[in-house]
Amino acid sequence: HHGSGALAALHADGPHAGLPVTRSDARVLIFNDWEERKRSEPWLRLDMSDKAIFRRYPHLR
């Protein structure tokens, strides 16, 4: 199991509170979210491209 239990660094406060600090933090969040959702949506594709990251977390651009 590759990303399970990996912890992402999140901004503690300010405008980005609760959001990932780096792209690799964002990838951890996206992976964990996908892993949760694919139980009920097995067709869901995992997209951890930069484009997917920016779409979801525009502050990382």
Results as ranks from 00 to 15, higher is better:
Pro42Met: 11
Phe31Tyr: 15
Phe31Glu: 04
Trp34Val: 02
Ser40Trp: 12
Leu7Glu: 05
Asp33Arg: 09
Pro58Gly: 02
Lys38Trp: 02
His59Asp: 00
Asp33Met: 09
Gly5Trp: 10
Ala17Leu: 06
Tyr57Met: 02
His16Gly: 03
Pro20Cys: 02
Leu46Thr: 00
Val28Arg: 10
Arg56Pro: 01
Arg55Gly: 11
Tyr57Phe: 09
Thr22Tyr: 02
Leu46Gln: 01
Pro58Ala: 02
Gly3Leu: 14
Ala26Pro: 01
Asp13Tyr: 07
Ala6Gln: 10
Ala12Met: 09
Arg27Met: 13
Glu41Trp: 06
Val21Pro: 04
Phe31Ile: 05
Trp43Gln: 10
Val28Gln: 11
Leu60Ser: 00
Leu7Tyr: 11
Asp33Trp: 09
Pro20Lys: 00
Arg39Gly: 10
Arg37Ala: 09
Asn32Ser: 08
Arg61Gln: 12
Gly18Thr: 04
His11Asp: 03
His1Ala: 09
His1Ile: 15
Leu44His: 07
Arg39Pro: 12
Lys38Ile: 12
Arg55Trp: 06
His2Ser: 12
Leu44Asp: 02
Ser4Val: 15
Pro58Met: 02
Trp43Cys: 12
Ala52Asn: 10
Pro42Gln: 06
Leu7Met: 13
Gly3His: 11
Leu60Val: 00
His59Glu: 01
Gly14Val: 15
Ser4Leu: 09
Arg37His: 06
Ile53Asp: 00
Trp43Lys: 08
Pro20Asp: 00
Asp13Lys: 10
Ser49Arg: 04
Gly14Arg: 04
Ala26Phe: 01
Ile53His: 02
Lys38Gln: 11
His2Thr: 14
Ser40Cys: 15
Arg39Asn: 13
Ile53Pro: 00
Leu60Lys: 00
Glu41Phe: 05
Arg27Tyr: 06
Tyr57Val: 00
Val21Trp: 02
Ala8Asp: 03
Ser49Thr: 08
Pro15Glu: 06
Arg27Asn: 02
Arg45Ile: 11
Leu46Trp: 01
Glu36Leu: 15
Ala17Lys: 15
Arg61Tyr: 13
Arg56Met: 08
Val28Pro: 01
Ala6Glu: 10
Ala17Ser: 10
Pro15Ser: 06
Ile30Trp: 01
Pro42Val: 05
Arg37Thr: 03
Ser49Leu: 02
Lys51Cys: 14
His11Ile: 07
Arg37Ser: 04
Asp33Ala: 07
Gly14Lys: 03
Leu10Asn: 09
Arg61Asn: 11
Arg39Ile: 09
His59Pro: 00
Lys38Met: 10
Ser40His: 08
Lys38Leu: 07
Leu60Ala: 00
Lys51Trp: 12
Ala17Gln: 10
Trp43Glu: 13
Leu29Ser: 02
Val28Met: 07
Arg23Asp: 08
Asp13Leu: 09
His16Leu: 15
Leu44Thr: 06
Ala8Glu: 04
Ile30Arg: 07
Met48Asn: 03
Pro58Phe: 00
Gly5His: 11
Arg45Gln: 09
Asn32Cys: 11
